[in-house]
């Protein structure tokens, strides 16, 4: 049974007033994580297969082919954990 921790290497706040949260996926699991997310979220925009703007549960976020995701407007860690679980598992 997979867990969010199987996919996620680090969760940090981004530097800047945006107060975004950046999720870095484990290098060996990044492609699997991206595949899961791209399957479950709706694609709104895509830049050269490098940046994907996605929508999920009324929320917009961005995923990067390098194995990162940036979420904006997340209330707290519990909410982020729930969204990641819904996207990854």
């Amino acid at each position: 049974m997979s867990t969010v921790q199987d996919y996620v290497a680090r969760i940090e706040g981004t530097c800047g007033a945006e107060n975004d949260i950046i999720v870095t996926f484990k290098y060996e699991k990044k492609q699997e994580a991206l595949d899961h997310i791209l399957k479950k979220a709706a694609l709104k925009n895509n830049l050269s297969g490098i940046i994907f703007e996605l929508a999920f549960e009324g929320m917009s976020f961005r995923v990067y082919s390098s194995g990162k995701a940036i979420f904006r407007g997340i209330k707290n860690r519990a909410e982020l954990d729930r969204i990641l679980a819904a996207l990854l598992l």
């Binding site: 981004t14 800047g16 945006e18 975004d20 950046i22 830049l47 050269s48 490098i50 940046i51 961005r62 990067y64 390098s66 990162k68 940036i70």
Partner: peptide, 8 residues
């Protein structure tokens, strides 16, 4: 965002 730019 600046992070989008840096990651791209």
């Amino acid at each position: 965002s600046s992070h989008d730019v840096a990651l791209f």
